[in-house]
Amino acid sequence: MAENKKYTKTQELTYELRVKDVMNRTVVAVSPKTTINELREIFRDNRISGTPVEDKGKLIGIISIEDVINCLSEGEMDAIVADKMSTNVEVLRPDEPLVHAVSKFNKSGFGRFPVIERDGGKLAGVITKGDIIKGILEKLEIHYHEEEIQRHRASYIFDDIVADQTTLSFQYNIKSKDFNRAGESSSQLKKALNCLGIQPDLVRRSAIAAYEAEMNIVVFADGGRLSAAVQTSQIKLTASDSGPGIPDIEKAMQPGYSTAPDWVQELGFGAGMGLMNIKNCTDKMDIQSEIGKGTHITAIIYLNNKK
């Protein structure tokens, strides 16, 4: 039993919340001279099923719909509240934890308790089981909302880490000529950027650029590396390979210029759009390439939406 005992969030809240946090403050207290007939209408108009009875600002009893029903069946609707109310009233204090109210409800079987101020004994409110449920649900809602906000808050991780410059970096190794798995690294990178809460359109631009760079490595080089360095102000993508190199970068940048073999084009790539796509999706791009040595592309995307 003991090892399985779980302490739930709801239980935690019954300790955290106070009676005053969930009680109903707009109390329709009645005077002892009210007739049961009048009381019936008060209950109906206010949609309540019970209320405290006050005399000169002092709580003297509590009366519920059950008393009204009894009077109805006995034909005593003209009786006054003072004669029919329960005078043995149990009360709660505003500062008591909710768990006290819960146990009081469980023990007594009453539908409601008046809440009385410790100083002066003034009636502060009424609490029902419904108020408790509502109060807990509201609190859970607030917790959930905060969690959601935090999950979506852009790059909150950067706020939590204190340093003069924070850089998160991801690196992916890319295999050559493995067309079925090509794009996996960019896919993982995109998920990682999403996890950081970066703005969706910036994630998309980074992903497209990374994907085109990854495809180039798969097609032309014997594998290589794709990496992303994320800072508060920018994402820096780097794609490097030790492939054949680009003979004429200016030409390679032209849309439609391609040296890709036929099998690549059949897969929907190699139409000479790749480098242009990377350039268009990023704010700054640089290509270093040497024949026989390899190609090194860096591309930067600013996170503050300024170019």
Binding site: A182, G183, P200, R204, A207, E212, G268, F269, G270, M273
Partner: peptide
Amino acid sequence: LMSDILAFSSPGALLLTGLTNPQVIRTAEM
């Protein structure tokens, strides 16, 4: 041509293609 899709399409679009390879899905994902 997936590079064209990458260059000239938009999020939330319907993609029509005659190509059936994993790169179609990757492109759409990006």
